[in-house]
Design a protein around this nucleic acid. Structure first.
Lengths: 350, 350
DNA sequence: CTTGGCACTCAAGCTTGCAGAGTGCTAAAG
DNA sequence: CTTTAGCACTCTGCAAGCTTGAGTGCCAAG
């Protein structure tokens, strides 16, 4: 199954041409394009071999050839040369990401920038498992009656809020005290430890502090129980996919868009990519999800303070400009990592 | 231009039939369906009149008739009888909306419920103009370096947050003092008054309080300046629209979806509807936006504590089941108003 | 005013024919 | 053994022509 250099060149040109034009590539065109001094007939012979290896196929007897998924795989793994991205695209990305923003906006902007630059749909999985993050600040605000608004800030500056139903009414000063107690006791501790610690806390309460502690602990616990990970996945630029001729079929589009709102399957894929480092590519059915047939996913994990916290990427037709998309995704991940780490330094790429 | 009763019945049956089937309705069918003892020929004569009035038209010489926008208008304004919604739909709506939630989730759930029940896209414009709302609580949290997270809670329990860049580093206790000062001074005041008041505040600072006040005022001002109304419009269930045969054309779909992400035009329409009371309907090009051709918008304003704060509705093809959609939108608006008002009482419909 | 009848029109579906593109195979040339 | 030219063959896409079914408009009679 070794691919001789000539076959490699032909496969590479075929795929490049197909990505650019979207039309099956015939032997004549390919012979001219490849830069080898070969006749169409020779090219046909090579094509025949490639077809046997399952790297290309004919849509029908007398069309040119198109790459198969395996063909794309080979292309992506061994043939493709990543293009560095254009200066003003880089500039745009930096502008979008290297400004002071809270994580939520940062993520939304990153997703949008990805989609705009690639002209595909952008995905960003928000930092996973806030349990990993340290607790920074809590605040209780009285709403009407027994409803209490709990505001929780994690180390990365992300703000979470929930309304809980208290067992009785509390005065504003009680709430302030409770928050103070909590903030002093737990500042900098990881959320999972905080949760764990809350389990024991109530029993060993010293007498005078008891009421306040009880209050704080109970509330925080209630709030965290209610805190299911919310909108973990940000998708932007979906409508770019409507221009893709491969997805002209409304049914396919619909399935794809449903996958965007369901999010479950996509999250699973992005989760996988979190465990590897660097750019990872899922081509067509490799993902294992029907809705993503004819689509590819280019992803890269990003980190905060040296620790991987999420994944981002783009989704588009299998026939996408991998050479460019790969570096865009890669750089976006780096920029985002920089922006989420330290913050002050700004994390410019050197 | 008066419509005699027979013509009304025929127009009504025609539109009902067309909404149900999506096919031009011919004279024979209509004669049978309408329940009047009329021959197709007579129906044809009536149709001819209706066509002259611009209420129906033929897609081509020898198809049946379809309603025009004006036809729909007449139907909606004078002919249609609103269907009360089914018990389990009502139940679903109540379940989705009558639970203790912060406004953000409430709005998202309302939008989603709307889209699911109507099988169309749901829209909710988030409470407009927080300036109208009273200030409730502010909090400053130190992030790294000079970055300060400002958390602002308005009277309705909505939480806003922004990161601002301070002129120097501040100690946690300074921040606490500043927040306290601010909370005591401005609690319950409307945001617009707070903003106004901030303009004067700095000059007349008494000496000892000066530093803290200066800090609080400066920060709050910076935060509010940065506080542009964010995601004001929540759209759900867009993918329902892909099943609509009228929108089978991908180009139309794309324009519509772009309108969803742009949001500007939609906001403008919803804004209009905020000024009237009760359900308002935009049919096709009445909206004035090309992207919404072939679509109708059914909207209703909702209120919090007796004051209109936003609008919700659904968007779908002109050919939608108005009879049901209208009451769904109407009731959702009431439920949401109830949930946003007082909170404690729960606002069940009596 | 209503009705039946008739001529007419149009869209949609089907078949046919044709041009264009590209292949596979074979036999000859390098 | 590899490369090439040539030829027959296949398939798509498109346009033209045909038929069918649905529905209209109009007219004259009830």
């Amino acid at each position: 199954m070794a691919l001789n250099p000539r076959a490699e060149i032909l496969l590479k040109t075929l795929i490049e041409r197909y990505i650019a034009e979207g039309q099956p590539v015939g032997s004549r065109t390919l012979a001219r394009q490849a830069g080898l001094e070969l006749s169409p007939a020779t090219v046909r012979n090579v094509m025949s071999d490639l077809e046997e290896m399952g790297l290309v196929r004919s849509p029908h007897t007398s069309a040119g050839r198109v790459p198969t998924e395996r063909g794309y795989r080979v292309f992506v793994d061994t043939l493709l040369q990543v293009k560095p991205l254009h200066a003003n695209e880089l500039h745009k990305l930096e502008q979008e990401i290297l400004t002071n923003q809270d994580p939520q906006h940062l993520i939304e902007n990153a997703s949008q920038a990805l989609s705009e630059i690639c002209k595909l749909a952008g995905l960003v999985m928000a930092p996973r498992r806030e349990e990993q993050l340290a607790f920074r600040h809590i605040d209780f605000v009285n709403l009407s009656g027994r409803r209490i608004l709990v505001i929780l800030v994690t180390q990365d500056g992300q703000v979470h809020n929930r309304i809980i139903q208290a067992d009785r009414e509390y005065s504003p000063s009680e709430l302030v005290q409770a928050a103070n107690y909590f903030n002093e006791t737990y500042a900098g501790i990881s959320m999972s430890e905080v949760k764990f610690s809350l389990l024991g806390e109530i029993q060993q309460a010293s007498d005078d502090m008891q009421r306040v502690m009880h209050l704080a602990v109970n509330m925080a616990r209630a709030a965290m129980a209610a805190e299911e990970p919310p909108d973990e996945l940000v998708v932007s630029g979906e409508s770019n996919l409507m221009d893709v001729p491969e997805l002209g079929d409304v049914r396919k589009l619909r399935r794809l868009f449903e996958a965007f709102t369901t999010k479950r399957d996509l999250l699973h894929l992005l989760d996988q990519s979190m465990r590897t480092s660097g750019v990872k590519i899922f081509i067509g059915t490799e993902s294992g999800y029907d809705a993503l047939a004819e689509c590819s996913l280019v992803t890269a994990p990003y980190s905060a303070d040296g620790r991987v916290v999420g994944t981002l990427g783009v989704i588009g037709p299998t026939r996408m400009a991998y050479e460019q998309v790969i570096s865009i995704v890669d750089i976006t991940a780096r920029l985002l990592s920089g922006a989420l780490s330290g913050g002050e330094r700004g994390g410019r790429l050197e």
